[in-house]
């Protein structure tokens, strides 16, 4: 404890450069955006103050609520897709299978490939005229299952979700794999001696042991889902007719395409607000369970 006390100043000065950069590029712009959100501004001519008008207009815009709904779809499908799938893959790879390094690399690959590539690949898979998905279904005689995956508005958002899950579940696999390998060998041995094997060991021993990691992964998955932009932008551009638009696309279209920087800033403030609410809710739930 004493040694730590002596170095507290040193720690502070060591972190200062990073802190300053973070404040400069993350904290200050948030307040600048907050300021702009009260103006009507095209970026070129003079700003005019409009008070809360931008927020009122956003709340009255059905497209915005559609984008919120789509964000929730991404969030929920992301949670129920990425976390269990990541855990399953991690459990499989933790069993010292032959070639597990190879599979680990393959599983992590989508995380490393740029989103542009991921979007283009899935765009080709989903194409209704020459795409892989429909060809595969046709091959198995499931012609009636063939769809216009990205164009049919009743399923397009779920098609996007699937690509999103594929892109990210490798990340959770690696996080869980690291946590699994940190479970002390004695615990597993003791479990084995007590006769806990297979699924029972997974649910009674392994998952409780990595509970804190799972909670972190859940929070990360949720906050990540609010940031999704590039995948949707390239896969569908938010279309057809706003049906796959998420909040970031909504904000981008207003701020940068239609040049309403005030309105776009207000939308970005709402993204921040919504993600803070959801993340703090999840954190609280997790803590209540801990106590």
């Amino acid at each position: 404890m004493n040694t730590l006390k002596g170095t507290r100043a040193a720690i502070f000065f060591g972190m200062l450069p990073a802190l300053l950069i973070y404040i400069g590029i993350a904290i200050i712009p948030i307040f600048v955006s907050l300021y702009y959100s009260f103006f009507n501004w095209d970026g070129i001519s003079a700003k005019s103050a409009v008070g809360f008008d931008n927020y009122v207009r956003i709340f009255n815009d059905s497209v915005f609520w559609l984008s919120v709904k789509n964000n929730i779809i991404i969030m929920v499908t992301g949670l129920i897709g990425q976390i269990p799938l990541g855990l399953l893959l991690a459990l499989l790879l933790n069993r010292n299978l032959r070639g597990s390094t190879f599979f680990r690399t393959v599983g992590f690959m989508p995380v490393v490939i740029s989103s542009v590539m991921v979007s283009l690949i899935w765009g080709m898979i989903y194409n209704s005229e020459y795409g892989f998905m429909n060809a595969l279904l046709g091959f198995f005689g499931l012609d009636s299952w063939q769809r216009n995956w990205l164009g049919d508005t009743s399923i397009s958002m779920y098609s996007v979700s699937l690509a999103y899950i594929w892109q990210n579940c490798g990340l959770y696999m690696v996080i869980f794999l690291a946590a699994l390998q940190n479970i002390p060998g004695e615990v597993n041995e003791a479990a084995e001696l007590d006769g806990a094997t297979g699924l029972r060991r997974v649910f009674r021993i392994t998952i409780p042991m990595i509970r804190s990691t799972i909670l972190v992964a859940v929070v990360y998955s949720i906050s990540n889902s609010f940031r999704v932009f590039d995948l949707v932008q390239i896969l569908t551009g938010g279309g057809p007719a706003h049906m796959t638009e998420v909040m970031t696309i909504y904000m981008y279209n207003h701020a940068f395409v239609s040049r309403q920087f005030g309105y776009g800033s207000a939308a970005s403030m709402l993204i921040l607000l919504f993600s803070l609410i959801v993340v703090s809710l999840v954190n609280r739930l997790g803590r209540e369970k801990d106590s």
């Binding site: 590029i25 993350a26 200050i28 712009p29 948030i30 600048v32 955006s33 702009y36 970026g43 989103s115 940031r227 999704v228 932009f229 590039d230 970031t248 904000m251 981008y252 701020a255 940068f256 920087f261 776009g264 800033s265 970005s268 993204i271 921040l272």
Partner: peptide
């Protein structure tokens, strides 16, 4: 001022979303 302002708007975007080309 406008330049600085836009840069910060752009930076917010880059943070709020994954790094955006603009």
């Amino acid at each position: 001022i406008k330049g600085a302002a836009l840069l910060s708007v752009a930076t917010t975007l880059a943070l709020a979303t994954a790094a955006c080309g603009n």
